[in-house]
């Protein structure tokens, strides 16, 4: 992975440069999307140690500033590339593509599933307000409402587990997409691409797939957050 001297540091004296460079260059890595977590940790700590602001307290102001800027960039690169989803989003950003360009990335099946879950949550809120509103005329009626609410909660909790499974599956799709990029970069007809597979053949299809996967993950995460809120409110009410 350490294909070149990090441009984060001066190649001659090792001083931090604080240059405005992308996340891959900050780590001194070629643009490859399959990232080994342990290697990332090592590089992060090694570079972080070498340009730590504490070492430049007494240095010239320009060097002190470079140390601060470089450290901030390093932390940002570590966070951005450390998480596969943010890494994918960053890859789009790096190539001037945005996730929110349009809604076409959401498949009809996914939209229908989201709608069904939202209706489930709506039903849960309705039953809850009936149960808490004391509208039941008899104790038996109140017990029945409570039983229905408990059943609905269980259903929603089961749904949340399914969604978590779907996010895990999407995570594996994301890894496969990353591997495709790296393969295209390594096997490009005009030789391996230091700058990644964005200019290698088939980039448009890989971008489209990446967008679809990231959209799905974003949507599922939002949905799980909505479920969490609905269940929490149910508990607190």
């Amino acid at each position: 992975m350490q294909a070149q001297e990090p441009r984060t540091l001066c190649t001659t004296c090792g001083a931090p440069l604080g240059a405005a460079i992308d996340c891959f260059a900050t780590l001194g890595w070629p643009r490859r999307l399959a990232i080994d977590r342990a290697a990332l940790e090592r590089t992060y700590h090694e570079l972080g140690r070498r340009m730590h602001p504490d070492r430049f307290v007494a240095a010239a102001p320009a060097l002190r500033d470079a140390s601060l800027r470089g450290t901030a960039r390093l932390t940002q690169a570590y966070r951005t590339l450390g998480d596969p989803v943010s890494r994918g989003l960053y890859w789009l950003e790096l190539h001037g593509r945005k996730l929110a360009d349009n809604n076409k990335e959401v498949s009809p099946a996914l939209a229908e599933m989201v709608f069904a879950v939202q209706e489930q949550l709506d039903d849960l809120r309705t039953v809850r307000s009936v149960a808490r509103g004391g509208e039941a005329e008899t104790p038996a009626g109140a017990a029945e409402t409570a039983a229905i609410e408990a059943e609905m909660r269980t259903e929603v909790e089961e749904r949340r587990e399914e969604l978590r499974g779907a996010i895990d599956a999407a995570g594996r799709e994301l890894e496969a997409n990353f591997a495709d990029w790296d393969k295209a970069a390594a096997e490009s007809p005009d030789g391996p691409h230091e700058a990644g597979g964005a200019s290698a053949p088939g980039a448009d299809a890989r971008f489209a797939e990446l967008k679809a996967i990231l959209s799905k993950i974003a949507y599922l995460r939002t949905l799980i957050r909505d479920i969490d809120r609905a269940l929490e409110t149910a508990q607190a009410a």
Partner: peptide
């Protein structure tokens, strides 16, 4: 028609 927007989580039928 059921459509959704991933950026905000909205869904419309």
């Amino acid at each position: 028609g059921i459509v959704g927007a991933p950026e905000c989580g909205d869904v419309m039928k």
